[in-house]
Design a protein around this nucleic acid. Structure first.
Lengths: 181, 181
DNA sequence: ACGGACATGTAACGAGTTACATGATTAT
DNA sequence: ATAATCATGTAACTCGTTACATGTCCGT
């Protein structure tokens, strides 16, 4: 269900094509959701069929045509209805931690490499989110006020990345120490 | 893929039935993965067909029969091979944050209720993980050393929950303040 | 000539959810 | 009686991934 409403929310903020959405997912909601372009197109078709979206084909000079989607009244109503519903308890899925759970099958060097790779990934994400945050802080105050909660989700993303980084750094220190002894 | 290897890892530590696994998922790996009993049974059948698991049917007095699965040599090899592979970058999926991203459709009271519900969930998870942690700390030192990295994943889970709680508490404070002004 | 951004799609498959189904034992 | 725990499964469906497919324009 969440992809459906992530799409509706983004199109509510600003209409766009499947291609646009894919980029907006990467640039502005990657701290809580991700999806492939195939999923976008499938979801857009479905939402359109159900009458939650309008679709306007735009011919462009020097670029392929595109289909710009926007919310219908029905779509806006469905979105409002969903947001007030309490969310189901989260399903946690962390493939990296599954691997570490079986980490006793690794040598100390392999353990260190695995943790280091994870650390690098989360440092990159942190930087990405911080750049987004700076763009937000530079933007229009009225917009900032309207999307205050949305901005808070980004701040959560930043804290989550910092938690990963602290954990991985601590682990690496312990691994180094245990080599010496 | 991760479910497959979570199952293999748990059965590597100790053989068990689908039913057992389901409970062990809830009691001891819920901080990084969850799965329904249907998924367990399907996965066990598949792993058995592929020759990665042995299956022994046990008749029990006063209880239904059960099928106890354990790793074959092939299963152990497959597990080792997988653990050394680098993991793909994580896909983040947080339905609650999707809802908050569309939070400008909510009244201030509804926003507060939503954040409070989330706070309660994460407090409950934190307590659960801390109890698990205490059980681990009371256990055999040899086991603790062997499953050192597995234990670190639990400590990560605890930190992640604390991050959620700090974030939610901060948000609630800000919501209260903005009511006064 | 070649790669990258733009733009949209199909097909097949694997993973996860929901609903349904059965049946014994134990505790209240 | 009735619910909870133990124990295993099928069927239908949705969601997510991977691979394949097409075609233009722009810069180097």
């Amino acid at each position: 269900m969440s992809l459906r409403f992530a799409v509706l929310t983004l199109l509510d903020i600003e209409p766009g094509s499947g291609y646009d959405l894919k980029r907006r997912f990467e640039r502005s909601v990657s701290h809580f959701w991700s999806a492939s372009h195939q999923q976008m197109y499938r979801e857009l078709h479905k939402l359109h069929q159900e009458g939650l979206l309008d679709c306007e084909e735009q011919t462009q000079a020097g670029k392929p045509d595109k289909k710009v989607y926007s919310l219908t009244e029905l779509g806006r109503a469905e979105l409002r209805e969903w947001v007030i519903q309490p969310s189901a308890p989260q399903k946690i899925r962390e493939p990296f931690l599954v691997r570490m759970f079986a980490g006793h099958n690794l040598s100390r060097d392999e353990q260190r490499d695995a943790v280091e790779a994870q650390l690098h990934q989360h440092r990159a994400s942190l930087q990405n989110y911080q750049e987004q945050n700076e763009r937000v802080l530079k933007s229009d105050t009225a917009l900032q006020e309207r999307y205050w909660l949305a901005h808070q989700t980004l701040l959560f993303g930043i804290e989550a990345e910092k938690t990963w980084i602290r954990w991985a750094e601590g682990l690496l220190e312990e691994l180094e120490e245990s080599v010496k002894t």
